[in-house]
Design a protein around this nucleic acid. Structure first.
Lengths: 194, 194
DNA sequence: CTAAATTGTGCAACCAGTTGCATAACAACA
DNA sequence: TGTTGTTATGCAACTGGTTGCACAATTTAG
């Protein structure tokens, strides 16, 4: 049940409508958690029912359906309670690795293109993260505690992307070597080179 | 719909019962995909209905409910078709990073313990992967194409664990520095040190 | 021979996330 | 004034994954 807690955190930073929260997921939050507007509205309704958040009274004409939520004391307590919980390691799921397994077992499938494409996507993400880092966490600047912790989160993303880029390069080199060597057999090669 | 394709790949390597497939998920497959026995049985039933796999005729007494599945030509075709598809980057979800965001915004929550615990778990995984590597892909050994591709998958796991271990060390150091410096404020520090 | 552990299959209910669609206020502008 | 784009909320149906439970054959150990 992490979504509720992501939303609590974000609302604690700054009250917002469901729509605004959805946009925040496109930016900073989206790095390590995602949600569609559907999920967000549903979850906000639950959280309101649980007494964790409340909508601010409508301003002006009152014809709009817009609802801006803020965190209630019970919501803040719930966030702190949850933050103290232990969680198992996040399970890794990667479709590309599943495809690579298929490639290993069902023979050469030409996965190089897809790996190269992923590598480029990881490069794009890394570039975007680096740009945020240069903008918000430039070296030498004096940062608040909050900013320094946020920087740690960004750095986790940077390391993650870097590690996939490095792996992709290694994998492409190995697959190229395999293709060139012409070793397509399922059994270990018969002719030893020594 | 990756689960079906994981199962196709595994059955192609070696026919198996649902139970045996579940155990394979605890080992090699589990690195980048997970499934409970429930999901596996449900999916096998679907795949059989779709004509991708078939159960081998019962051997011996025939009193057992055991069903061993093998891949049919249609299943193999489906696997190859799917392997050629493009997929977006795997979305990253990490509850620990969500907690760290809460820590950044809702004040110090003592997340160091949890980060250290995760670091130890990542170390365990890395050690296990390294043991497999030493066992199955020792340097200098002549490996089949299949083994070399499998090694690439393992290496992806190794890099992933290494990158989290390195991040954890960095995060713990930074959090320790923050605690020591006594900077708990939300605003940038007032007293410049120069 | 019996008890316990392991192997093996499955139903039912639930929860979280996805997809497609519908609706409506408001702002900008032609 | 009407059209288009943005902001804003929500229902309904579905898919994939989780949890709890039940049942039964086979193997192993006492």
């Amino acid at each position: 049940m992490s979504l509720a807690h992501v939303l609590l955190t974000s609302l604690l930073e700054q009250p917002a409508t469901g729509f605004e929260l959805a946009r925040r997921f496109d930016k900073a939050i989206g790095q390590f958690w995602q949600a569609t507007h559907q999920q967000i509205y549903r979850e906000l309704a639950r959280m309101e029912a649980a007494g964790w958040i409340a909508a601010a009274p409508r301003v002006g004409s009152g014809r709009s359906r817009k609802r801006s939520y803020g965190v209630l004391p019970a919501g803040r307590e719930e966030l702190l309670r949850w933050a103290g919980e232990e969680a198992p390691l996040q399970a890794l799921r990667d479709e590309l690795m599943v495809r690579l397994r298929a490639e290993a077992i069902a023979g050469p499938l030409g996965l190089e293109r897809e790996i190269a494409r992923h590598m480029a996507l990881h490069r794009d993400k890394l570039r975007a993260y680096r740009a945020i880092e240069a903008e918000d966490f430039a070296p030498g600047r004096v940062l608040s505690r909050k900013a320094r912790v946020m920087h740690l989160i960004l750095k986790a993303g940077i390391r993650y992307e870097e590690s996939w880029i490095a792996w992709s390069a290694e994998a492409l080199a190995e697959l190229a070597a395999l293709a060139e060597g012409g070793e397509g057999g399922v059994q270990p090669p018969r002719r030893s080179s020594r």
